[in-house]
Write a protein that binds this DNA or RNA. Structure first.
Lengths: 217, 217
DNA sequence: GCGACTTTGTTCCTTGCTTCACAAGCGACT
DNA sequence: AGTCGCTTGTGAAGCAAGGAACAAAGTCGC
């Protein structure tokens, strides 16, 4: 499988995890790592890991494993985070604050180029050294900093309007934390994280477990 | 397809979304809704929606659609959120605070039965009317409130230890926001949300878009 | 320099999910 | 009562992902 091959969606998600695990290993002075070792650290089986990596080309050495640094660089490149990428975050409420303060973004390839809110009381505040601006500044910041990704952390009611403004400003990928379905043009990608949905999925499995238990009793 | 059929994982996730959308429609006084209408509101195609619902039995009326109330009740039951479910949240940092304050949990079937942290300065505080307790109180609270779900919002280093304590206390489902791979016994379910991973997936697609653009130029 | 051993990269097979297409069923209207 | 139109429920085909297994390719010890 050569480099140009289309990478499955499921693989992309796992590549990001491998990269995180490798980052954690960085300090250990380990030069190379086998698919078996990395797979177990990432919580997947080794065949799957090897197949995932094979989409990026073939750069392990048989009998040895993968060079950690080469691996990190290849994955970073594939994910497009070898250079830092600028994001804007809209909505500086509870969740927005937490996201803005989350150090994991910077560590893993992202810079917050701007914070935005519609509430006048929040505008002008600084959060993790970044200024909160009014929505009217959005287009200028997006253009100036070449922002391609926007994060929505507003209430559900505001999400679609904010999304439209992001798209109009030139953003082509959106990460949506608001519990709302977003409608976007075809060329724009949306990913959503709905906290209650995650809990409900777990709840479903709990349900099933206790139903099974009843049968046993 | 009768009621007892195993429900695919992908369907479960969408059922939660349908339920959310139905909740949003509640005020509209709409008595019934067609698969087409609900599907478009949920952002999926109607055939998929009908198949998803068919796992819960067959209770639509042809030529008309589904009764909104019946639908809500069926989905709630399937997901195990027809009664409120108690969860505990460990880690009251930035993100933990945001989660504790998030109203969407209560609206959608979950009650926060306890907040926990290892930092003595945080213990005793009240967040959204819930007391922050020391980890040593965890087993008692889990038992008393019949908690089956735990949420981890600690730094990555603490996540595995916290997870072990949750499992030891009797929790059988874990929602993990820490960027770490958790090892759990077989009967315990884990779902993870890694914010940086989500962004990296978007970044990958951006990468691909701009690569395509270069070819066009 | 050669053989044994290790680990990758890939092929094949199976499983699960999605999409399409349409028959069956229900209500409304005449 | 009968027909027409609409919408559900599902069978079957098509696709994507997961897992096992093995040949190819390299290293290390002797």
């Amino acid at each position: 499988m050569s480099e140009g091959r289309a990478i499955p969606e499921a693989t992309v998600a796992r590549l990001a995890v491998y990269l995180r695990v490798l980052g954690g290993l960085a300090g250990s002075g380990l030069g190379t790592i086998s698919s078996e070792a990395l797979a177990s650290a990432a919580g997947v089986n080794s065949a799957k890991l090897r197949k995932d990596l094979s989409y990026l080309g073939s750069f392990g050495t048989r009998g040895v494993g993968y060079e950690v640094e080469v691996l990190q660089e290849r994955i970073s490149t594939a994910l497009g985070v070898s250079e830092h990428r600028a994001v804007v975050l809209v909505g500086v409420g509870n969740l927005g604050l937490a996201l803005a303060g989350y150090g994991g973004f910077r560590n893993r390839g992202f810079d917050i180029a701007g914070l935005f809110d519609s509430d006048a009381r929040r505008i002008g505040q600084r959060i993790a050294e970044v200024l909160v601006r009014p929505m009217s500044d959005l287009p200028a910041v997006v253009r100036r900093e070449s922002v391609s990704i926007g994060v929505i952390a507003t209430p559900a009611e505001a999400a679609q309007a904010v999304c439209d403004q992001l798209v109009a400003a030139g953003v082509t990928s959106v990460l949506n934390f608001a519990p709302a379905v977003l409608v976007v043009p075809e060329n724009v990608d949306v990913r959503k994280v709905d906290l209650a949905v995650e809990l409900q999925i777990l709840s479903f499995h709990e349900q099933r477990k206790s139903a099974g238990l009843k049968v046993v009793l």
